[in-house]
Computed example of a mutant assay.
Amino acid sequence: MPAVQLPTTAELRHALPLVSVRGLRVAYDEQLVLNGVELDLFPGEMVALLGASGSGKSTLMKSLTGFAPISGGSVRVAGHDVTNLARGELRTLRSEVGQVFQQFNLIPRLSVLSNVLTGALHGAGPINMVGGFSSAHRARAMHLLDRVGIAHKAKDAARSLSGGQQQRVAIARALMQQPRAILADEPVASLDPKLADSVLELLREIATEDGIPVLVSLHVLPLALAHSDRIVGLRHGEMVLSGRTAQLDAAQLAVLYQDEEGAGDERDH
């Protein structure tokens, strides 16, 4: 009888979801925004989150780090039960989840390097907030800037960079946290198509090479089809579509936007 081949630790790690959402319900002032949403994110994959304005994409993103009021179901992220975390535990969770936003959220007057270093504040300790970061932190920040292709801009003020360059700084800052997962909420909405492609290529490369799951909300179907491993779709707060990107096409995804005209903005945008 042949010996049973047990999975390696690495294989087990990649077989278990780092993010697991089951039956999620979120309500604001008794208005249901998400209803029964289920989602898994596995290490090494980039998942595109699609849906019209008001579908609940941003609310779902916020629920993963405890910024949305979870009224039902369960949310687990990197081993944390998000529905039952104390304030200090929430801070720890948020330090383990890198976030990339549409508006970059950089500090304009600070240098590119300083902006990246802010990603290490949680682990650096209060002395570093007033007295500067260690040489190890600075070396890591420079390494990350080199990785995203803008090390030559390290000393420049963040406000002097183009939109695409600023988003790369934001990605380097997120990586500075040594995140377990990355949430990117409409990260290319303000970029032209060429820059959007390059930023999404970078995020997918990070997911693949670092084993970090990336959940990215998008509004443009071709970008989702070109740059994701899986696609999940929300409509009126419910998950109505989920599948491997290679098995989906624009026609199948169009149902998510059928009633977009006249739809209201999301409560939490």
Rank of each mutant, 00 (worst) to 15 (best):
M239D: 03
L113A: 15
A15D: 13
A207T: 12
P43H: 11
L183I: 04
F42R: 14
G164E: 11
M1E: 14
L144T: 11
L41M: 13
M142K: 15
L34H: 04
G23S: 14
E45I: 05
E209I: 04
P7M: 07
R235K: 12
N84P: 00
I212N: 00
G149S: 05
L6T: 11
G56R: 03
P108W: 01
R22A: 08
A136T: 15
G23Y: 02
L175I: 01
D185I: 00
D268A: 09
G23K: 15
M129D: 07
L41W: 07
M61H: 08
A181L: 12
I171K: 02
L183F: 09
G56A: 07
V4F: 15
V4Y: 15
L256Q: 09
H122C: 06
L32H: 13
L191F: 06
S114R: 15
K57R: 08
I150Y: 02
P43M: 13
N105C: 09
A189F: 00
L64F: 02
L18E: 04
S63H: 02
V188C: 12
N115A: 05
Q247M: 05
T92N: 04
S160F: 04
V37L: 08
P43I: 08
A15F: 05
I150V: 09
P17M: 10
H137V: 05
V26F: 07
G211E: 03
D229N: 13
K57M: 04
V82Q: 05
V188P: 13
T92M: 05
D40N: 14
L234K: 00
P213K: 10
I171M: 09
P126I: 00
A207M: 12
A172M: 06
E89L: 01
R180E: 02
I182H: 02
D156E: 13
R87G: 00
G51S: 05
A251R: 14
F67W: 11
A207I: 09
V169G: 10
R138Y: 09
A124H: 07
A154M: 12
E238A: 09
V19S: 06
I206Y: 08
A68L: 06
A263W: 03
A78D: 13
M176H: 10
F67E: 14
L85A: 12
L191C: 10
G79I: 01
V77K: 05
S198T: 15
K194V: 11
P69H: 06
P179K: 03
R25T: 10
S135M: 10
R235V: 08
P108T: 10
A10N: 10
G23I: 04
S71L: 01
V4E: 15
G125Q: 03
V19G: 01
G123D: 07
R180Q: 10
Y257V: 05
V4C: 12
A48R: 08
Q247S: 14
Y28K: 02
K62R: 14
